[in-house]
Structures are given as C-alpha cells and as structure tokens.
Design a protein around this nucleic acid. Structure first.
Lengths: 236, 236
DNA sequence: AGCCATAGTGTCAACGTTGACAGGCAGGCT
DNA sequence: AGCCTGCCTGTCAACGTTGACACTATGGCT
C-alpha cells in the first residue's frame, strides 16, 4: 500500500499524461480487487450540457453503448456524485429507474461496483468507480477499503484535473484585475452598477467599464454570466 | 484504526451534535499523534464576508486572539483550502507574509501542523487541521498518515455539514420548480428573458414570472443573484 | 520614449429588467 | 367543491444594462 502512494504521488506531481495516470489508478484498483475502474470529471458549466471527460477500462462495446444511448445523463451514480461526497454501492434499488442501463452493464461484466465522488475548488466534480464481474461487495470489504478509496479518488482527481481542467475550462486562465473581481463580487450579491459605484466610490460608468472588461475576459455573454462563471470557478 | 471508522461513521450517520462529532474527530487526531485539531467550514456566500464556522480544541486565548485580530481573513492555510484539495504542511515560508500570526500560533503551542481541505456539492469548503507543539512533521509521517487524514477530513466534513449547512445556508431548503430551475439555468448562461422565452417556447412574460418566483424563494435581490445562488449551491 | 495594463470619466440610444396591475387553466389534496 | 400550486399570459412605467463614441492619467516594462 505504501508502494502505491509513492508511485501515484510521484506520478501526479510530475505531470503524467492522463492515460498514464489512469493506468496507475487502474493498477491500484486491481490490487484492491477490482478489474474495472473509471474516472469521470465534469466541469461546472455550461449548465445545460456541462463538459465532461471520462476515462475507463470497461469493455469497448460497453463504453460505446454508454455513449450512444446517452446513459451519462441518467446514470444514477453520476447523479449521486453531483450531490454528495459519500461513497455509493451499486444496487438494484439504485438502478430501479434505469433498468436497461443496469442490465446492460451487468451483461458487460459490470456487476458489482462502488463509486467515490470528489469535488474541487474550481467546481469540477469527479467520480472514481471501481467494479468487477464476480464477488459481491459486502460491508466488511467496504469498511476495509474506504480509506484507500477516498484517497485514490482524490489523488486521481487532483492528477486528472491538472491536465484536464485547463482544456475543459480555458476561462480559468483569465487574469481578472482586483477591481474587476470586486465589481463581479458585488454583482454576484445582486447589486446594480450604481449601487456598486457608491460602494466602491467610483462613478457608475467606471463600474460598468470594469464589468465590461471582466465579461470580455471570461468570454461571457453578459455580466450575469460573467459573475456566475467567476463565482463557480472560485474566482470571487 | 478500524475501531475509529466504525465509531465515526456510526456517529455521523446518526446525527450527533457538532461538539460530539468534533470530540470524536479530536480523539482520532490524538491517536494520530496530534494534540490539537480544528475543523472549519465556509459557506460559498455572501461573497464579501462568507459565513464561516470553526470548531477546535486550541487554547482559549489563541482562539480569542485569532478571532479578535481577524486572522481568518489572512491565514494562508485558509487561503490554500479555498483553492486546492492538497494537504498543506505548516512552514516558515507559508507564513512569510503573516509573521505575527505564525509567531503567536507557535507561542500558543501550535508549532507543527498540517491541513487537509475538502469541498462538497453545495459549494461549502472545509479544512481539517491537525497540530501539536513538539516533534516536527517529516515526510515519512505525512506519507504514513495521509490516507487517514483525507478520510478523517472528509468524514468530519460530511458530519459537520449535515448539521451546519442548514443553519448556514437556509436558502438550500428552497424548493424550486422545474421551470424555475430551467429559467435560472438559461439565465446563468447569459440568456435574456426573451431569448429564454424562445428557447422554452413560452412568452417573455412567463419567463420573467418564473424568474421572479425563483428570486423570491431564494431571497435574492435580483435574478442575477438568484442564478448565482442556485449555481453555487448546485441547484442547476 | 513608446507600449501596455489598469483605472478612471462622460454621453446617448437601444435594449433588458423589475414591479405592480390583472387574469386563466390544469392537476393534486381535503 | 374549494383550495393550493405550478404554470401560463398581458400591459405599462421606472429603472438598469450594454455598446459605441471619446478622453485622461498612472505605473511597470522594454
């Protein structure tokens, strides 16, 4: 177990490729008794259809199937990861509303699994899934392995996010000036330009000016979208 | 170590009081070799002066000092937790810009410590700090204990958030209708009411109507603030 | 000295938002 | 049947936002 840590940490500190990092995670998953392993990341926006990245070692036909049928949008494990930090074990009741997904997953050899969500300061959420075709998951095994699971999910997240986030959220690289952030912060509180002008002791025109610049830097449609992007990305 | 898990998990599943939960965390911290332990939570808004909660077993005079001098606003460990998920070890260079904080902390017996940030789906960020007065922290100890640390931070967060978040974020309890969420989602993307009206095949007036209701339910000053609150709280 | 980012200011017209008025229709609960 | 909620619609006036025009000034970098 110690060997893992060294390995993964060294790997994630020096920037590995996503695939290499995933391979290490998958090897650790195998040591933990799981043939299959998946890591998914989801950006906090666009809100309708957020950008996602998924990397896994599931059978090819299942990967294709999952994509083609749009299972991502209904997968209850994904829904869970978006709301909670708790580990989640696959069960019949979990998939009660998506029987096709569940049956096809089992047919593909994904019979027993659990997932650990993770979330970072840029609003990106992630989920590590460990799965196997035989041998059900019991409470003792989960208790034994939960620490490794959380650790692995978080390490995978940090490593993956390092390379994926700049690609997924190019807006993160926008360098907002102190004034721009201040204007966005007040906007996020629901203040109008002229209220902000009073608060910051500048003219309304200047408040608008900074908001305009921030909106352009963030590639946002208007100041509402700019304030939301900044808020969600943790820039405020 | 297994005993811990059982204990904390059972504790956090049945709703313990914050203080009781903290006492369990502090006991585990002591088993890990740290006399002092602190858990802090910060709500995602208001953006200027976010609501925070802190519980720790630091010496009383240090707690008072930290509060009175407003160290929370400048504490570099807090700044780190707001940007990263990585563990952070206290060091001279970390506190280079806040020498008073660092000297006073050491004078209070807080000489060696590390912190583990954590973040959840409601945008609340947390940080678990373990500290002690003697015996420096070395790489091997950190490597040995990092899994327990992440696990403990996350468990503490989940447990604390359960009772703290409803108090800190009463807006979370707002039940938005499907339409209201849809309108907020589009608003968050930067669409105007009449664009949304076209997208949703309703009149501009109706789009405004739903946005208005959502704004009232979230106690927001205007639709921008409403969309931001919903976005940050993960309601979109 | 010239360039650039940041910060500050003004006006004006077109467009978007908000609040207060006033109303209808469908589905669930008592 | 009466009530509530969600959803839908209209008008109008006051107020807020956006973009395009034009201009000043400071401080850092080359």
């Amino acid at each position: 177990m110690k060997a893992w840590q060294e390995e993964l940490l060294q790997g994630s500190i020096s920037a590995l490729s996503e695939q290499e990092l995933f391979n290490r995670v998958a090897r650790i998953a195998r040591d933990l008794g799981f043939d299959y392993c998946a890591y998914g990341l989801r950006a906090p926006y666009p809100f309708s259809q957020p950008r996602t990245v998924m990397i896994n070692n599931y059978p090819d036909h299942w990967q294709a199937r999952y994509r083609d049928r749009g299972y991502l949008a209904v997968d209850p494990t994904v829904q869970h990861a978006l709301r909670s930090l708790q580990p989640l074990v696959w069960s019949d009741s979990l998939f009660a509303r998506t029987p096709e997904l569940w049956e096809e997953a089992r047919a593909a050899g994904l019979a027993f699994g659990w997932a650990q969500p993770c979330r970072d300061a840029t609003g990106v959420s992630g989920m590590l899934t460990l799965a196997r075709s035989a041998e059900a998951l019991h409470a003792t095994e989960l208790a034994d392995k939960q620490m490794e699971m959380i650790w692995l999910a978080q390490s995978a997240h940090v490593g993956m996010a390092r390379s994926v986030v700049p690609r997924l959220l190019p807006e993160m690289r926008a360098k907002l000036s102190a004034r721009e952030i201040e204007m966005l912060r007040w906007t996020a509180e629901g203040k109008t330009s002229s209220e902000i002008a009073d608060l910051a002791n500048i003219s309304k025109r200047t408040a608008d000016f900074h908001l305009n610049n921030a909106t352009a830097k963030l590639n946002a449609a208007n100041k509402t979208a700019a304030a939301i992007m900044a808020a969600v990305l943790g820039l405020l």
